[in-house]
Nucleic acid binder design. Structure first.
Length: 939
RNA sequence: GGGCGCAUAACUCAGCGGUAGAGUGCCACCUUCACACGGUGGAGGUCACAGGUUCAAAUCCUGUUGCGCCCACCA
């Protein structure tokens, strides 16, 4: 066994603990070995040499399962590095929902949830204590994140960035805000905004999620017309808001209400009179009673109506969602209690007119899940129109390429309908707004506390207590992390202001609006340049049945469990039941699943095409890919054994032998497909081709063929040894981006690094031209393979044991025979023929032989296998009849096609010719089968 | 209501104008000295439905049905 560890150095120390290749592949052992070495050796370090090559900027992947991540640093590297890092990271960013942690919003949410469990809110703690607690949690959680990073092999950059509010980022945020204000784009206004009473903050439109299909009721009640017995009945899903009603609207053309136009209604709980207004925009005559109550302060449509008619806006809620003074006797009740109480009170006054069930959509806060309340509030807004137009143009002119392009329409739709962005948040964790409020209500926006505000101790001037939406700072990320607003060398070098430079962004489509679009807008606005040139939007991971992962549903699968293995026995019975329902293939795996390893998980994710919006994670598929890694492991083990002591060739060896030329040609083809796939962001195509090449070309054919050659002790086949070494090395280099750990482990066995540690990650990624492509050889080998498969099929069909050798005859004209004649040895080896196969042009049919036909470019080859004494004649008859039936079907189809004059006249000549040739070979095959049918009797 | 996407073998998914593909699962045989996480074969699909374009359609167009997502929303 090739057990001794080859000399390999790392930072001056020998790798004496290198594993023995004679052991079976164990992902846990392999993967625990490499991470630290990569880090210490500088594989992750940015390539800062300015050698004119394009620079790729790759964002840090989200590191953990809590939803929080840190994005303080970008990866900067050359193309070669980028290819590798891209893949190393892809497993991440598709597994975890990306979120931005510039201001630590996710962390803040975690802490708020902790407080909730203690029966408190952040307001009970106070601003200072709360912020301190968030710090504490962040620092504590660091350790856990670190572990997960190590296992997955992502960049360690995050460790260098402290979990602190970065001063430079703070400066960039302030600068951006002030600039926008100076340019008149950032303004303060009082508007109806989305308010989350639970978080007690304003939200942007994007942070509101709609819950569909909520059960509610449509409640009807009457307003009495002032000074008359008449009434108008209105319907509402939110009766409590009637306390803020300042009008009832009807359609101007509605005949039912024409007599009432201009009259006033009596508000049952207040002494104000409510006018009847006519409004064709708000009112749909056909819906309900055709009359609508108008609450301008708590509904977006009503707000707009109020503006049109100059109605009073009466706010009835406190910031925590309870009734304020305007609620009159209902003051202090929360929204639900108030609803009940108002309904009851209306009923007591004889105004209730019944209720019916109604399905409605509830707007909910993305963070807390609380029902969002439209509230009138003074906030900071950012004008979006012009920025959006530029961002649209950038994508349309391909300055930014969106991949897959299907997303462009979604992007367009968002930007074309964009509303001004409410950027202020009444939270305590984040970048505070650089505005100062004076005693007389004056407001100063400035980079630092303005002189006219007086000293810090002057409490009449205070800084705006609000912080910015976390996505505001995130939008600055591409350049704020490079030192902007300073014109730093990093910014100059890495930010793609130079058209020669290229940057890619890879992320999930769920933050296309939140983050990607805003980075493009801010990039163009502040730097006049796009922040990256290509955006790859990958799908989201969902469970095996296609459902979104959710804790409630119990279908969340922790990628670390997939990597390390997990046991079902540790789960509660109903948790397990839910899990098995969501992952049918895992349910069949017995008492859990084994450790698949990070490589297998990563490779599996790489095989899903980016156009897949949803990636249904099937553990079985991961298992299959782990088998592939095992295959790589064992193939390398075999190769090392066959090679003995050897030197890895520095370049592709020149080969004469058919099989050597063939495998190099296939390698060249695989390298081409892999490169093309990666460059076009079709990682799946690259990964699948490498899987196919390694297993089917290299293992199933090439290794089988060369085994006896290299084991032959009478002669040393240097050409084949060099070809094997080269091909294996190139395969590992090709595979490394997809399966970094196992390839690194094996590469170190192939290659001695005499002085300092180096990694396969630093080796060149193979190209098509590294090895010669030889299409003619590939065709010849295809013929050989056809012959071998035909003989093997006969074997398998007749259940002939391997130990029983089969007499073999190959017939054909001289051209076709010439192809295979030189490869008797391989045919004998792989078919288990009895002695050397016989080759002949024509001749008497040997008794008891069965026939199959292999079509080749130079005419058909007939493969005759002697079955006498080896098989049951009845069995043989069934087989032939089955094949005939299939042939007849194919023949009928092609005859139908060829007999149609429209086909022969109109189809391209080559296509017609091809069909004719097909027909011919089918006919021949049929004739031979008929022949062997008669041979059955001879058995 | 507007937009986008998906419906292909038992399952998870490729293919996207020229005779249906992969992995897993299934069946048969093989413990042949890299690997049973293996080998050799095999079975299995009128490519959701209905029209249309074309010599030719899983592939292009129209419509229908079912599912998913996004945006906007009905008082």
């Amino acid at each position: 066994m090739h057990g001794e560890s080859r000399p390999c150095y790392f930072e001056g120390s020998k790798m004496s603990d290198a594993p023995d290749l004679s052991k079976p592949y164990d992902p846990r052992e392999v993967e625990s070995r490499w991470y630290d070495r990569w880090e210490k050796s500088g594989v992750f370090e940015a390539n800062d040499e300015d050698d004119g090559r394009p620079v790729y900027v790759i964002p840090m992947p989200p590191p953990n399962v809590t939803g929080s991540l840190h994005m303080g640093h970008a990866q900067r590297c050359t193309l070669e590095d980028a290819l590798i890092r891209y893949h190393r990271m892809r497993g991440f960013s598709t597994l975890w929902q990306p979120g931005i942690d510039h201001a630590g919003i996710a962390t803040q949410t975690v802490v708020e949830r902790q407080l909730l469990k203690e029966g408190k809110t952040r307001h009970d703690l106070g601003r200072e204590a709360f912020v301190e607690r968030v710090w504490k949690w962040k620092n504590e959680s660091g350790g856990r994140i670190a572990l997960q990073q190590r296992v997955l092999g992502a960049s360690p950059d995050w460790r260098r960035s402290k979990f602190t509010m970065d001063a430079d980022l703070g400066r960039a945020v302030t600068e951006a805000f002030v600039l926008l204000h100076e340019q008149g784009l950032m303004y303060r206004a009082t508007r109806l905004i989305n308010w989350c009473p639970e978080c007690r903050t304003a939200l942007s439109d994007l942070e509101v999620e709609n819950e569909e299909g909520a059960n509610g009721e449509l409640f009807e009640f009457a307003y009495k017309v002032s000074g008359s017995a008449e009434e108008i009945i209105v319907a509402t899903t939110r009766p409590e808001t009637m306390l803020g009603d300042t009008a009832v609207a009807v359609h101007p053309d509605d005949p039912r209400y024409k007599p009432l136009h201009g009259k006033k209604l009596v508000h049952p709980f207040s002494d104000r009179l409510v006018p009847i207004i006519t409004d064709a925009i708000l009112v749909d005559m056909k819906f309900g009673t055709g009359a609508v109550k108008v609450t301008p302060a708590h509904d977006f449509n009503d707000f707009a109506t109020g503006k049109r008619h100059g109605l009073e806006e009466i706010n009835i809620f406190e910031l925590d969602g309870t009734m304020n003074d305007n609620g009159g006797k209902f003051k202090g009740l929360d929204r639900k209690e108030a609803r009940r109480a108002v309904k009851k009170a209306l009923d007591e006054k004889g105004l209730a007119r019944g209720a019916k069930p109604h399905i409605l959509t509830l707007p909910r806060c993305q963070r807390s899940g609380g029902v969002v309340e439209p509230m009138i509030s003074t906030q900071w807004f950012l004008k979006m129109k012009d920025m959006a137009d530029r961002a649209l143009e950038a994508v349309h002119t391909k300055r930014v390429e969106v991949i897959p392009p299907e997303w462009v329409k979604t992007y367009d739709h968002f930007l074309e309908n964009i509303q001004d962005w409410c950027v202020s948040r009444q939270l305590w964790w984040g970048h505070q707004i650089p505005a100062w409020h004076g005693p007389g209500g004056e407001i100063r926006v400035a980079r630092t506390r303005p002189a006219e505000c007086g000293p810090e101790s002057d409490t009449t001037w205070t800084q705006d207590p609000d912080v910015l939406d976390t996505w505001f700072s995130s939008a600055l990320w591409p350049f704020s992390t490079l030192g902007w607003p300073e014109r730093t060398p990093s910014l100059k070098k890495f930010y793609p202001t130079n058209p020669k430079q290229t940057s890619d962004l890879e992320t999930g489509y769920d933050i296309l609006f939140f983050w990607v679009a805003r980075m493009i807008m801010f990039g163009l606005h502040f730097t006049n340049e796009v922040p990256f040139r290509r955006v790859l939007l990958s799908g989201l991971i969902v469970d095996e049945t296609g459902e979104k992962m959710s804790k409630v549903r119990g279908n969340v699968i922790d990628p670390l469990d997939l990597i390390h293995g997990a046991s079902f026995s540790s789960l509660e019975p109903d948790t397990l039941a839910k899990f098995k329902k969501s992952y049918p293939s895992a349910a069949q795996m017995g008492d859990g699943f084994p450790a698949f390893g990070a490589d297998a998980v990563r490779f599996t994710l790489a095989t899903y095409p980016p156009s897949n919006m949803r990636i249904a994670l099937a553990p079985k598929r991961i298992e299959g890919n782990k088998h592939f890694l095992n295959k790589i492991w064992n193939a390398t083990r075999l190769s090392l054994e066959l090679l003995g002591p050897f030197e890895l060739p520095a370049k592709c060896p020149a080969a004469k032998d058919t099989w050597n030329r063939w495998v190099l040609s296939r390698l060249s083809n695989a390298a081409r497909i892999a490169r093309e796939g990666i460059e076009a962001f079709r990682i799946d195509e690259a990964a699948n081709e490498l899987y196919r090449f390694f297993w089917y070309d290299l293992c199933d054919w090439y290794l089988e063929i060369i085994k006896p050659r290299l084991r032959d002790t009478t002669q040393r086949d240097e050409e084949t040894r060099a070809t094997l070494a080269w091909t294996l090395g190139a395969s590992l280099r090709l595979l490394h981006p997809f399966v970094p750990f196992v390839t690194e482990e094996l590469w170190q066995k192939l290659h001695d690094y005499p002085e300092k540690f180096a990694s396969v990650a630093l080796e060149r990624f193979p190209e098509e031209g590294d090895a010669p492509r030889d299409v003619a050889i590939e065709a010849r080998v295809a013929t050989l393979q056809g012959v071998i498969v035909a003989a093997r099929t006969v074997r398998a069909e007749h259940v002939i044991k391997w130990a029983d050798k089969i007499p073999l005859v190959v017939r054909g004209d001289s051209a076709a025979l010439a192809l295979v004649r030189d490869h008797v040895a391989e045919i004998e080896l792989l078919t288990g023929s009895a002695g050397t196969p016989r080759f002949e042009h024509e001749g008497d049919r040997p008794k008891g032989y069965t026939t199959s036909v292999v079509p080749t470019a130079s005419g058909p080859l007939e493969i005759l296998v002697g079955l006498k004494g080896l098989v049951d004649p009845a069995h043989e008859r069934t087989r032939i009849e089955r094949e005939l039936k299939k042939l007849d079907k194919d023949l009928a189809a092609i005859d139908k096609k060829l007999s149609s004059p429209s086909f022969t006249d109109k189809a391209p000549k080559e296509v017609v010719e091809e069909s004719r040739a097909q027909r011919k070979s089918l006919e021949e095959a049929r004739a031979r089968l008929h022949e062997s049918l008669s041979l059955v009797d001879e058995l």
